[in-house]
Computed example of a mutant assay.
Amino acid sequence: MSNCDFQPYAVVVAVAGVAIAAAMASAPIADASASQVRVETVARGLEHPWGLTFLPDGAMLVTERPGRVRLVAADGSMSDPIAGAPQTRAFGQGGLLDVALHPDFASNGLVYFTFAELDGGSAGTAVARARLVRTEGAPPRFEGLQTIFRMNRKSSGNRHFGSRLAFAPDGTLFVTIGDRGEMERAQVATDHAGSVLRIADDGAVPPDNPFADGAAAEPEIWSFGHRNPQGAAIHPDTGALWTVEHGPRGGDELNIPRRGANHGWPVISYGVHYSGRTVGEGTEKEGMEQPIHYWDPSVSPSGLMFYTGDVFPDWRGDLFTGGLSGQVLVRLELDGERVTGEERLLGDLGMRIRDVRQGPDGHIYLLTDSGDGRILKLSPPD
């Protein structure tokens, strides 16, 4: 089945300013009208694609939220759904979510997934792994599927599953989990909801986790007090985990989850409830972490990537995240742990950006979130 449909054109984006509170370092939002980027549709016809990862040969694995995984070649040709993937279905905001390769994928073939695991009328975020098998003349398949982590409290809600995966330089795996739409759970450290987890590649608890003994909190928890983290990336120089998460109405956050730290939700937030009511106690409280950056109004960030390639040399070291409600690609300029500038791209496409990844060719690839979702490739203008 071929889905090769290249549609190149230049994109010119005008950006409106957004107020940043004095509590945060000012980061001006650029008018991108002078910027141009070439956009190509590599593949289309994906149903709400959620996660993308590149194989060593340049092909892509893409998850679709209803529960499918497809292999997409560089030319856009797309496989039928790969057998052996985790069993799930679209469940509100849940379903099949992120995908990542084991650091030693070239030798062990292991692929990791996050997904909404269903149990009757309840659901919870889970992590599974399986071995990808590609044999000449046969369709790809997954073998040996194993669920290596399940959150400890399933619930009937269909919101805020998270969930992204990021392998750290030491081989441990970070997993983000949302508060499941029950915000008070994010402050309960004996509940996995609303937390960033750190586990070994087989699901075991690393002995140097902040709560490894399980006495004060669930041993997998790295940090808590998160609302709905939908982007995670490892800083290429420091090795630290960075995340983005959805706020309520306003207050989307960029965070560096600190070991054992409380990141505040829902006690503190730069957003308000959808009704307009104040969230919690305000924007700061002793003992609770501040975000590195926040957005008000919301862009609903999803996916996160540090750009390290050569195709866009002026963007090397910048941080990118997709915007769902914002329907933009956000580029952040950094100075250490401080955001010094912001540019918004692709606003004229009118597409929800679910994931952003750097390809092995140095180009930037995006997933658009719709019933006719696309893989887009960004290049410099001709």
Rank of each mutant, 00 (worst) to 15 (best):
V133L: 13
V18N: 14
T368H: 04
Q230W: 11
E253A: 13
T172Q: 14
S163G: 12
Y112N: 08
D80R: 09
T321K: 09
C4R: 06
E281F: 01
E117F: 06
T340W: 09
D5Y: 06
P169G: 12
A19M: 07
S223M: 07
R344M: 09
F105Q: 02
T340H: 07
L346Q: 06
L71P: 00
F6N: 03
H192T: 06
S223A: 15
G350L: 03
A32C: 15
S107K: 14
N158T: 15
N152E: 10
G371H: 03
A27K: 04
T135Y: 00
G121S: 12
Q327I: 03
Q7H: 11
L346G: 04
A34Q: 07
L367F: 03
A215Q: 14
A34P: 00
T88D: 06
L332G: 05
E343S: 15
C4G: 03
V330D: 11
H263P: 09
H246C: 04
S302F: 00
T243A: 15
G109P: 08
A34F: 03
G309I: 04
Q327P: 01
M1G: 06
G137R: 06
F320D: 05
L55S: 07
A32D: 10
R89S: 14
D296W: 00
P206Q: 08
V18G: 05
W242F: 15
G371L: 02
T147L: 00
V133Q: 12
R153K: 11
G178L: 09
G251A: 05
V356L: 05
G276T: 08
G225E: 09
W295H: 06
A30R: 12
A74N: 03
N262K: 13
V15L: 01
P169F: 13
D252S: 10
V299R: 01
Q230G: 07
A74T: 14
G95F: 03
G95V: 07
R198H: 12
I375W: 01
D98H: 11
Y112R: 02
Y365Q: 07
R129V: 02
R141S: 13
V339I: 15
